[in-house]
Simulated assay, not measured.
Amino acid sequence: MTDTFPSLTELAAQEEELQLRSFTNDDAWTLGSALVARARAARLPVAIEVSRHSHQLFHAALTGATPDNDTWIARKAATVHRFGHSSLYVGQRSREAGTTFEEQFGLDPERYVAHGGGFPVLVRDVGPVGVVVVSGLPQVEDHAMVVTALRELLVQQLR
């Protein structure tokens, strides 16, 4: 199956939209738990991590997830931290420039990967404060799962 990638414009719009009012340990638990509930309902073999300032606040590995998923999580999170954008955004920026992430940046592939599923936790008027990552599905699906959960958390905060 070939991934259909959202445009860089769409990905940038998501990052603008999905800026939270605040981000506490309880918010990390709510976000992670929502991702687990969604994954369990669909029987998805994913691992999930939510962190703030590199402090792991939530981690889960559902049935079918493997230790490799944790390695992917670390690599996606490192990419988000380094570039300040979702890991899918970083990869799409290279694709739209007619190259690959690996060719464009030459970073250690054991540490960085520009595959979807890593998203910055953004607080409005503050900036990035953490990362949420899903690993185990095709990269666009990992990304979409995170976006959906962040939208739900944002709606809860705005009530």
Rank of each mutant, 00 (worst) to 15 (best):
L18A: 04
Q19N: 08
R151G: 01
V36Y: 01
P6D: 07
V123I: 11
F119A: 00
V123M: 11
F119M: 08
Y89K: 09
G116M: 03
D26A: 10
V147R: 09
A78H: 07
V123C: 06
P45L: 03
H85K: 03
A65T: 02
A28Q: 11
L107G: 01
Q156R: 14
T4I: 10
F105I: 10
A144G: 06
H55S: 09
F119V: 14
V132P: 15
H81Q: 13
A97P: 14
M145H: 15
I48Q: 08
A144C: 13
G32S: 05
F105A: 09
Y89F: 06
A149D: 10
R43A: 03
L150V: 12
E17V: 00
V132D: 05
T24H: 02
A61W: 00
H55T: 12
T30S: 11
R82M: 04
L153E: 05
L44S: 06
T30N: 05
P138L: 14
A60W: 06
L62S: 02
E16K: 07
G130Y: 02
E16H: 05
P45C: 11
N69S: 00
I48D: 11
Q14I: 02
D142C: 12
D125K: 15
N25V: 07
A149E: 11
R38E: 08
T24A: 00
R151L: 07
N69R: 01
W72P: 13
T148K: 10
P6V: 11
R95G: 03
P67C: 00
T99A: 03
F105T: 10
G127W: 05
L20V: 04
L107I: 04
L153R: 09
P45N: 08
F23R: 03
S33M: 10
D108Q: 11
V131Y: 11
A34E: 12
L20P: 14
Q156W: 05
I73E: 06
P45F: 02
G32W: 05
L107Y: 07
S7I: 01
G98S: 01
Q139P: 00
V131F: 09
Y112R: 07
R52V: 10
